[in-house]
Amino acid sequence: MEFTTQTAADGATRMAIDGDLIIYHADEIKRRLIDGIRGNEVFELDLSRVGEMDSAGFQLLALAKHESRQIDHTLRIVGHSPAVREIIEFFNMVAFFGDPLVIPAGEHA
């Protein structure tokens, strides 16, 4: 589980998560996400290197989105790994998150 934070070109803070968004890491993920949102007006999440996601992981993304709306900050998910994309689509929550789902080249079904 690795969290790397950097500042993107437009000044937003971008956190990349490398690992699995699953219940075993739920506490840490929650802390990182909520801290990130509260501390940055525009917070971007790069999930392109997330291997696995379960309901607990998904729930935390939803929590993060709620929280960002609550305090009027912006949360953007900028990269979706196949697993993340598949689950967000399965749960019919694409519109809820409102991020474009980028399908990397060479991965068209």
Partner: peptide, 15 residues
């Protein structure tokens, strides 16, 4: 998907 039951971030238990 309904996430209405989810409490505020601070009260939410990620497990």
């Amino acid at each position: 998907t309904l996430t209405d039951a989810m409490p505020e971030a601070d009260a939410m238990d990620p497990e």
